[in-house]
Nucleic acid binder design. Sequence first.
DNA 1: GGGTGAAGAGAAAACGTTTTCCACCCCGGT
DNA 2: ACCGGGGTGGAAAACGTTTTCTCTTCACCC
Lengths: 350, 350
Amino acid sequence: MDIREIARRAKVSTATVSRAINHVPTVDPQLAKRVWKVVDELGYYPNTQARALVSGRSRIFGLIVSEITNPFFPEIVQTFENLAVENNYEILLTSTVHDPKRMESSVRRMIERRVDGVAILTFGMEDTLLDHLRFRKVPLVFVDVGPNAPGIVNIRINYLNGIRQAVQHLAALRHTRIAFISGPSNLKSAIARRAAFKTSMTEIGLPADLIIEGNHQMDGGMKALLEFNGLSNPPTAVLCSNDMTAIGVMREAYDQDIKIPNDLSVIGFDDIRLAEFTIPPLTTVQMSQMELAKIAFQALLNEVQRESPSLERSEHELTTTLVLRRSTGLAPPGRHTAKPRKGTAGSRIP
Amino acid sequence: MDIREIARRAKVSTATVSRAINHVPTVDPQLAKRVWKVVDELGYYPNTQARALVSGRSRIFGLIVSEITNPFFPEIVQTFENLAVENNYEILLTSTVHDPKRMESSVRRMIERRVDGVAILTFGMEDTLLDHLRFRKVPLVFVDVGPNAPGIVNIRINYLNGIRQAVQHLAALRHTRIAFISGPSNLKSAIARRAAFKTSMTEIGLPADLIIEGNHQMDGGMKALLEFNGLSNPPTAVLCSNDMTAIGVMREAYDQDIKIPNDLSVIGFDDIRLAEFTIPPLTTVQMSQMELAKIAFQALLNEVQRESPSLERSEHELTTTLVLRRSTGLAPPGRHTAKPRKGTAGSRIP
DNA sequence: GGGTGAAGAGAAAACGTTTTCCACCCCGGT
DNA sequence: ACCGGGGTGGAAAACGTTTTCTCTTCACCC
């Protein structure tokens, strides 16, 4: 059942059918109605491949994430998909699992399917792959790691804002030994978070010397806490590069019978949905996944709809902010920390 | 840059280029090499739409899940994708969010993109939508809810096995008042789980009267626990229709200062990755997401590769099994429960 | 040495649309 | 009455492949 079948039955040409279906205004309403009637009767669906072939636009956006399995991403994928269906787009999702091979195959698949644009939500990309895409003039959206080139839009994350809030919150609770569990050091976003931690600490005259590299997964958090506790003077608060890590440290704390927040304060990063449901509920730095997805999609759409390639590189910013829950409290007394003057150690924050 | 460009530069016909690229054995190795050289030099990628148009096969599988945001699914999506790239397939992911409208648009999108098959991992599907797909002879894979028709493969989940183990585990720990928090009652898989709970209880002579309908989300679990505790004689153990629900009840228990497992035992269902990292680690019924994804994908592939439509409807079974962690313990003494004879109430299971 | 067959490569048709170009009709203006 | 022009719809080209069909070449056998 193709467009010709419809044309035959509606006694018009295929051109008219095409026009009717695409709501071209010049077609006679009478005819259009006749066409739609047949279309509905037969349950005709246009063949997207043929459409794409001739129009040159596939109406597919690529979405490259580093790990769909990390709860940070499904939320993004969901809103991205919502926006896609609203705009009659399809999304081609690939998850690189931090594997350069996979990254390459992702890009290849995107190009083969002739995507109209790609949002890259992962740690950068090898230049040679990038060139493949740029060569084909595929609009690209990066978060943070995009190169400084025309036609590439970058979404800058303001990590410092939220992380500074977190550090100052901890300092206000009399913590002085504040540790940081970073993400893998080949991940640019992880590096940026760590840097934000360092400057936040330095700003208020605290040493940023308690840093261990995790892996943005739960076991990384568990191992890191173990290591911190082996120290002669362990931290009383730990800030994590993402929420998964924080969940790991809370889990290890439970095993070690360290009470949170009484004995240890922990703060996460991302504010995944689950953070509200951990035990105790996790204080964390929010980086809105919905917002991020919306900005990325809209940027892609803009890029596609403008016919002339954009000259000015557009920049968007997404800020981060601390959300208080119940995993942080006053620093416990003793252990080289400044003595609290009033209030119960470990009491819940108001 | 199209196939003709390659043909011209390699001084062969487009037919030969096509054959070379597709590794048709009859092409002279000499020529093939010449073609590949040009292909690599120019970075040529065949146009998938054109390919699909003429060959009639899109090399796309549809994957319909109910909620990508539920941690049960990303795992599935990931292995599905892995298998897809291995087999040179693409996947078209849609998340219905339990909305019939979305379901319809999902199906429409699948058909428009001419998918070679669809795996439906969600609560059934309206018959009329189903007919659209069947009419077009799209191979379909369902889990549990598929109609009994030729050409449709069903993956049956053996819920009873795991749930019976869970119930008997609880009974062995002297629990007699065992509650169940079900999923939404319009969800067939939720109904099946509840039924399995009932028969498991009846089998061992326990009443299955403590059942509340949740929503397979965390807040549903929280509300349900609250409701149970309003009872004059609350349950000492609760079995949940999925892990999210269990996480909700553990969270609410934390708020109410009910200790798990000392005061209350809880068991989940699914064994999502996170279950290992809850506090305490969650005893749950495992339903392997990887296994499920593998079976589904393989079934689709089989269906596509056989040219004759399958006459026998194929059935696959996936079983479930209890995995013990630390959210269950001996029933607390008193409160109308059978008195434990030895061992400390609430002691951890070995 | 001529006929037969196989192997390899090219020409061209086909896939299902969109879009360009052209023909037609009808209207109003001169 | 004739011409110009705007609006409408059809014929056909185009998109980039795969695949069928045909042609050439060459080896082999009688």
